[in-house]
Design a protein around this nucleic acid. Structure first.
Ligand SMILES: [Mn+2]
Ligand SMILES: [Mn+2]
Ligand SMILES: [Zn+2]
Ligand SMILES: [Zn+2]
Lengths: 152, 152
DNA sequence: ATGCACATGCGAATGATTCTCAGTTAATAT
DNA sequence: ATATTAACTGAGAATCATTCGCATGTGCAT
């Protein structure tokens, strides 16, 4: 869509990079990926649109996009990195250990405490990694999206 | 020491495993490793005691030890896994992004909130990963142990 | 002392990610 | 439009941590 493409172009321009066919496609696929896919999965989706685009290019392009802040990279459970479009609002993730489903959440309270703990230890907090792992409680058995059970 | 060895023997026995020369040495090295070393570093220390012990054996043995709860494995910053002897009291880690130094801490408040957040989302919390990254504040510039600057 | 399941060492295999390099192309200047 | 050139790309090799396969060795129950 126009909006997505505009964002792409802006981000590329401001870092002196070129806007190529592969990059348009990769940007579009990423922008519509709301399920934290890993990079091979992303390549699969990209290749479905243009099979000539290589896995190398996907890796390289995602690195560029990450550098310009277009996307975020997560390593939820060791193993392969997973991608999501840069979020408007920051959030953290809870992984359903049974299904691999990723649930997003935010907790200002937790983040406050993190900064406080760091200060107490004599540090200024510059970043953190928080991932929760859990299992749906009996009464909350609604969704059953067996996305890809790759946790731990 | 006797205590360490006893623990080793107990843990091996109760899971039907054998107590071998390599395992004694690896257990001893791990028990005295208070700096969260990675596995090659552990192998270096083990090999300093008995150079015949292979890296494979270190990997395999650590897996056994982890299964019986003798040690814990962390992946602080992607890349290689780091090891520590099973802690008496649970704790989390803050990494000095400048030096790689690992600082341990605990925060019951944060853990309470984590469980609460999970419940709110309809999950029972089964585990979590929390790592803080930070930089020493001016006035706290005491320690300068450039252990191994491998963070992000 | 014997037997055998478990353990070990060595090298090969794996799997995700990065690198190399020769050929292509977007962006800019004639 | 054409030339120029720095960026980009595809294919495959290389890396690096970790795991496997297999022939050989050994702890330990009988
Ligand atoms: Mn997300
Ligand atoms: Mn520790
Ligand atoms: Zn996120
Ligand atoms: Zn710990």
């Amino acid at each position: 869509m126009t909006t997505d493409t505009d964002v792409l172009i802006a981000h590329c321009r401001e870092s002196g990079q070129r806007i190529t066919g592969p990059r348009r496609i990769i940007a579009d696929v990423v922008a519509h990926a709301h399920d934290h896919p890993d990079i091979s999965e992303l390549h699969r989706r990209v290749a479905a649109i243009d099979p000539r685009i290589s896995l190398s290019t996907v890796y390289r392009t995602l690195k560029v996009f990450a550098a310009t802040g277009l996307i975020e990279r997560h390593s939820f459970a060791g193993g392969r990195v997973r991608i999501e479009p840069a979020a408007e609002r920051h959030h953290d993730h809870l992984i359903n250990v049974d299904t691999g489903e990723v649930v997003e959440f935010r907790s200002d309270a937790i983040e406050l405490l993190q900064a406080e703990v760091a200060k107490q230890l004599g540090f200024e907090l510059t970043g953190y990694k928080l991932v929760l792992f859990g299992r749906r409680t009996a009464k909350s058995d609604e969704q059953g999206a067996p996305l890809r059970p790759n946790c731990e």
